[in-house]
Amino acid sequence: MAKKVRVWFNRWFSVAYLYMNHIRNNPDGVEFEFYGTHPDRNSMALQNCDYAEVEPVLEGLEYVEYCVDFCRRHQIDVFIPRLKMLDIARHIHLFDEVGTKVTVCRDIELLESMIDKDKFYELVRESDVMVVPEYRVVNTAEQFKAAYEELASLGHRVCFKPTNSEGGQGFRIINNDRDQVMDLFGTINPYVTFDRVYDILSGVDQFPNMMVMELLEGSEYSIDCLADPNGKLIAAVPRRKGNGRMRYLEDNQELIEIAHKVAEAYRIPFNYNIQMRYKNGVPKLLEINPRMSGGLHVSCLNGTNYPYLAVKLALGGHVEPLETKLGITASHIEQPMIMKDVIQAETVR
């Protein structure tokens, strides 16, 4: 009997549960075993694993050494990291030595810039690949005030976000017309007044770098991309975010062309996600996530198994460029499940 392919997900979002299902239910009949680690033993990502353990909280080289040891102990064939991708990429030779393929961008300078968004904006601004929003990088209250006033004077509504964050973490929109009492009693929202932010930031001499940007108020898209290990684009799916849970896989040729330009310019491998938002008919970059996006399972509804194909490519398989089915309206519902204790080992460090 052929050995099952062993795949490890480290500290992933709960949606990894679905990605494991996609990889298991592959059209080639390849059999897999899934390994998962997370500091939270009740993480949903672990519920779909054949082996799970509590992950230690480590930094830098110490964390990389834990990862290499995990791969060695369990003879991992493919490692799909989310946490500490940059540290892992910096020491990728250690994984090569134990025979584990890692679905991570090996271009350290590029990966570093994608994680620190202001660096990537500067890189993009020097090219004609995409348009970036007007932005300023600040780390003091006075810099924040100056950036806000400058962008507002140009006619922009203003928002801000830490340069190093995932998803909507730290994203706020400045709106000086808020009724703060009603906001307090209403639903949680991203709106905040300039005075409130300035007052908070004035309480410290310096804070972590933050991007103060023009607010993009048009349609938001996530372009889910699949590329081979050399960054050659195989598929790109523009996924528009609608109201609530509505999602639309659209035949947006403008965004598909941008995906081809990104692939040609930056050669990002495996699964990655380009987030863009329109303003006045122009799509502008929000960020690129060099990993599977949180909504990739929706894009899989077009009949293409993006998580499995990335694993196949990492193992040296060949995948031809794909003609993806578009024009699909999608949504999702929750599904209850009984939790089980899946931990086979506690933290080893």
Rank of each mutant, 00 (worst) to 15 (best):
A263S: 08
A147P: 02
D205R: 07
E257T: 12
N271T: 14
K145G: 00
Y266F: 11
G155A: 10
F194N: 08
A263R: 03
R245K: 07
P238I: 03
N243I: 13
L151N: 04
A265F: 03
V237Q: 07
D179P: 04
G167C: 08
N273Q: 14
Y266G: 13
M246D: 15
D251P: 00
H156Q: 08
S219C: 05
A227M: 06
C159L: 12
R196Q: 09
A265Q: 13
K279F: 14
Y248G: 03
K145V: 02
F144C: 09
G155V: 07
E142M: 01
A147D: 00
L215Q: 11
G231W: 02
T163L: 02
N164Q: 12
E214W: 07
S222N: 10
Q180M: 10
E166I: 13
R240L: 05
E250N: 09
K161N: 10
M246I: 10
D251V: 14
Y191E: 14
E257Y: 00
E257Q: 10
H156I: 14
R239M: 07
I234W: 00
T193L: 00
Q275E: 15
R157K: 13
I274K: 03
T193I: 06
E149H: 05
L154W: 09
I200P: 01
P190S: 08
L249N: 02
L216T: 13
L233I: 08
E166Q: 10
G168P: 01
I234M: 02
I256N: 03
D183C: 09
I234P: 01
L226Y: 03
D199F: 06
P229K: 01
M182P: 05
L184R: 11
Y148K: 05
I274P: 01
V192L: 06
A259R: 10
E220F: 07
G168E: 08
L233G: 06
Q143H: 01
R247C: 01
L255N: 11
I234N: 01
N189F: 00
G155S: 14
I258F: 09
K145T: 05
Y278E: 11
Q180R: 11
D183W: 02
E150S: 12
V158M: 07
N189A: 08
K241V: 14
F171L: 15
S202N: 09
R267E: 14
L233Q: 02
N164I: 10
L201K: 01
K261P: 04
I188E: 14
P229G: 15
G167T: 05
G231D: 12
N273F: 12
A263G: 13
F185C: 06
D205S: 02
R172E: 06
L255M: 08
M182I: 10
K241W: 08
G242E: 13
N164Y: 06
